[in-house]
Amino acid sequence: MATVRKKKEKKPARKKPDKFYLDRIVVIDWKDERRLRRFITDRGKIAARRITGTNARHQRQLAIAIKRARHMAMLPFIKEHYR
């Protein structure tokens, strides 16, 4: 006997606000390590827009800033010995 399972309702995703817009950041600074750190995963990867809500323009700027910060050893490329 098949139990009729209620179909999971799909609510439209709540649009996340762009964090750079909220803080009125116009230039994403490679020196702003504290802020950049919030946009990388615990493995050190650049977090997806889907996750952080960053808009397209800021995501492009962010990626460049993170790469500069990595070059200057302020952020990791990868975190080894993870866990």
């Binding site: 999971k8 309702e9 799909k10 609510k11 439209p12 995703a13 709540r14 996340k16 964090k19 919030r38 946009f39 995963t41 977090a47 889907r50 996750i51 952080t52 809500g53």
Partner: peptide, 14 residues
């Protein structure tokens, strides 16, 4: 924690 927020959103069916 933005990632925790995201997970909560996914659970909510977003």
């Amino acid at each position: 924690d933005m990632r925790a927020d995201h997970r909560a959103d996914m659970r909510a069916g977003g």
